[in-house]
Amino acid sequence: MGFLKRMMAAVGVGGARVETQVHHRAVRIGEELTGVVVLQGGSVEQRVERVNMGLATRYRAEDQDVTHTLWTRPVLGSIDLRPGERRELPFRFTVPQGTPLTLPGTAVWLVTDADIAGAFDPGDHDQLQILPSREMEVVLEAAGRLGFRLAGSEVEYHHGRVVQELSFRPPYGASGIQELELMLFPAAGGGLDVRLEVDRRARGLASLFVEEFEQQSFWHVPGALLAQGPEAVARELARRVQARH
């Protein structure tokens, strides 16, 4: 009977289960995501070699979607999980800078990956809603106050990192502008670095990563300006948009 139970557990029948319970699925970049990983023992004792947790997304490459792990860390080392035993592993981590925002066309999810001896593909995936950091929100609000409307989001992989391009449609009646494209990055000394392109032909920003940036395509938004709020940032953004087109 013991052999039969172990064999069934190996194909997912009566084996240990892993479930992740996230306290709040909506979380800002730079703030904490918290929850509990629940290990539930099955009908036989099983060895848990490790439990890892991380964030993942997808990006486009050569006309196909590629799953990419943004970040991972161990939650638990090796333990023996007895039949029917339940263990709860609280977790708490900061959503790192550079995590894509959850927007139409872009998904981010929490991956819980467990290595359990004799178990069949244990693990869990939980969709998250990644919100902009407070600083990013100021810039996005500034674009909205100028009448730009978010049209889409695309995640790409350039120079060893994932980047997210946000596309905005111009306000009704704006002449000569088809699209405003922004990429937002945390600046080393505070504030944000913005890659900005005003597009008349709706081409993407990808080429900017293999060419030197034009002076007007790079915008460092200092923390002091962000602290003044969306109206102040909108005035500077309007000046740069006008200069670009």
Rank of each mutant, 00 (worst) to 15 (best):
H24C: 09
P171Q: 02
Y157W: 03
F185K: 03
A119F: 00
R145T: 02
W109Q: 02
F209P: 07
E135T: 03
F120V: 04
L39A: 01
R6W: 00
Q242M: 10
R82H: 09
F3Y: 14
Q127A: 15
V194A: 11
V66K: 10
G15R: 12
G2Q: 11
H159F: 03
G123H: 03
D65T: 06
A56P: 15
P171M: 09
L101W: 10
Q164T: 02
V162S: 14
L205H: 11
R161G: 00
R235P: 12
L140P: 12
I177F: 09
I29P: 00
W71Y: 15
D121M: 07
A16Y: 09
R86E: 13
F218R: 04
A9N: 12
D199F: 00
W109C: 02
D121K: 11
Q242E: 14
G190K: 09
P122Q: 10
M8A: 13
T67I: 08
L103P: 13
G77Q: 09
V241N: 05
R169L: 02
L4H: 13
L140Y: 10
V51S: 06
F168P: 14
L101V: 10
G35D: 06
E19V: 06
P186I: 07
R25F: 09
E231W: 02
P222C: 06
F185N: 06
I79A: 14
A142E: 08
G160K: 07
V108L: 00
S167M: 08
D193F: 00
K5Y: 04
R73Q: 09
